[in-house]
Simulated assay, not measured.
Amino acid sequence: MVLHKFTQIIDENTDNAGDKLRVFESMRNYMLYFEGSTFRLLRHDDYEGFVMFFKEVRYAGKDAVSDRGFKKQRDTVRQFRIFLETALRHIGNRAELRDKEVDAPRLDSLIGKHM
């Protein structure tokens, strides 16, 4: 959910180059945290999608948020967001998680720690 929220924030912040860079770097920082903690818990079928996205974001330079580079990066982020939405929908369909609400305060806290 945190990665999904970052993809939304990146898509919404398209005007100011400084804001784009800050959010993009914040997402990278969260990705490092995610790799060290939750990454190993991914479903095998989802693993490749995460690896491909993480690799592309990790090796993107500062020009990735420039006007020319940002369009390509934003398209990549949007595609990953669709992938995440599908994965989250499947997770939400699991019997033990059905009708469970997202822990919004924890979500906001994690985003705040990395912004």
Rank of each mutant, 00 (worst) to 15 (best):
I10T: 01
E56Q: 15
R74F: 05
A64T: 03
N13H: 14
Q73F: 15
K5F: 06
M31T: 04
A87P: 02
F80N: 00
I10E: 02
V57K: 03
K20D: 00
M31S: 04
Y33R: 07
R89S: 12
F53S: 01
F83D: 00
R106M: 13
I82K: 08
D103P: 05
E56D: 09
D103C: 11
I9Q: 09
V102S: 04
G36C: 07
R43H: 08
E56P: 05
R106V: 08
R22H: 08
M52N: 13
D11A: 10
K5I: 14
T38S: 11
Q8M: 12
Q73L: 14
M52L: 15
K100T: 08
G112S: 15
L42C: 07
T14L: 09
Y47M: 13
Y30C: 03
V65Y: 10
K55Y: 10
G112N: 12
D67V: 11
T14R: 13
D75E: 13
F83R: 01
S26I: 06
I9M: 10
V77L: 07
P105R: 01
S109N: 05
S37R: 12
E56N: 12
N16R: 07
K100M: 14
E101R: 10
R74W: 04
V2M: 05
R28V: 09
S37P: 02
R94D: 06
S109C: 06
L107H: 00
N93H: 05
M115P: 00
D75H: 09
K20T: 01
E12M: 12
Q8P: 02
L41C: 09
L42I: 05
M27A: 04
F39D: 05
V23T: 06
D63E: 07
K113V: 13
D63V: 05
L3T: 01
G92N: 12
R68N: 10
L110G: 03
L110I: 08
F80W: 06
Q8S: 04
N29M: 14
S109Y: 13
H44C: 03
D99G: 06
D103V: 06
A95K: 09
D11L: 10
G18S: 05
I82V: 13
A95C: 05
L3C: 07
D99E: 15
R22Y: 10
L3R: 00
V57M: 15
D11E: 02
E25I: 11
P105F: 10
K55P: 00
I111Y: 01
R43Q: 09
R43L: 11
I82E: 11
H44E: 11
F6P: 03
Y59D: 12
G112L: 13
M115C: 10
E96D: 02
F70S: 04
K55S: 12
